[in-house]
């Protein structure tokens, strides 16, 4: 990856480091601490499930991880870079080159073919057309949709749409894949398919994944689980294979 931001950083350090990260919404008495002094780190190649009750700060944490938001205080280091000190455009560039997103609601562009949806991040990376096409085809093949390239989201099932979204997230070979309740809109069978797929990318390509989920069954696919409660980290379990 030819990003100057990474050239300086030794590969050995943690990919992600949260040091006393706090996120406050509102001011004064009415202020809510969505995150209250969180410390944790995630290293390259991990598959982490983030769990916790509604309103515990999971999405807030994901937004910060995804460089969409910055901490109110504390430090978030992405591969050694303090994201909080980057400008909005610099964070956009970081997202463009290093991050992939999967959303609960898929967020595919409507009336746009699966192929073009997958090509979208490559357009912003200014990848030439032919190369773009090739990479998008490859990513769609990786999620088993090589025969659905020219279908629009309206013509695909929920599970298929989420697979297109996964293809879009991995097409640019990100260093970190963020998924906020990726199976929230899917039935159990489709959810398992998606989880198998994510676990496969983690295992085979060493893709680092952080995923929010409510369901213990889905969380079980991850090797490590983080539990949130009221903006605090209550349980941070590192497990061995198959726990």
């Amino acid at each position: 990856m030819g990003d100057p931001m990474h050239a300086k950083c030794p590969v050995t350090r943690n990919l992600i480091e949260f040091q006393g990260v706090t996120k406050r919404y509102g001011k004064g008495q009415a202020a809510i601490r969505a995150l209250d002094g969180i410390d944790f780190s995630i290293s390259q190649g991990e598959f982490v499930a983030v769990m916790g009750p509604s309103g515990s700060g999971k999405s807030t944490c994901m937004n910060i991880l995804g460089c969409l938001d910055t901490p109110s205080s504390g430090t978030y280091l992405f591969d050694g870079v303090a994201v909080g000190s980057l400008s909005q455009d610099q964070r956009a560039i970081l997202r463009r080159h290093c991050l992939g997103f999967i959303f609960q609601g898929f967020n595919l562009l409507s009336r746009t073919s699966a192929l073009e949806n997958v090509e979208l991040p490559l357009i912003y990376r200014k990848v030439p057309v032919r190369e773009r096409r090739r990479m998008a085809h490859k990513a769609l093949a990786a999620v088993g949709l090589e025969n659905w390239c020219h279908h629009t989201p309206g013509e695909l099932s929920g599970g298929q749409q989420q697979r297109v979204a996964i293809a879009r997230a991995i097409v640019s070979e990100p260093r970190l894949l963020l998924a906020d309740e990726p199976t929230g809109n899917l039935d159990t069978v489709r959810s398992r398919e998606i989880m198998e797929m994510l676990a496969g990318f983690n295992r085979d390509q060493g893709l680092t994944i952080v995923m929010v989920t409510h369901e213990t069954e889905m969380a079980a696919y991850a090797a490590r689980r983080i539990h949130f409660l009221d903006g605090h980290l209550v349980d941070n379990t590192q497990e061995t294979e198959g726990a």
Binding site: L68, D89, I93, R96, F101, L120, Y124, R168
Partner: peptide, 14 residues
């Protein structure tokens, strides 16, 4: 709006 959000998340500059 959601399309714009998606584009921004994916790495589009303002």
């Amino acid at each position: 709006t959601r399309e714009i959000g998606t584009r921004l998340a994916i790495g589009a500059l303002a």
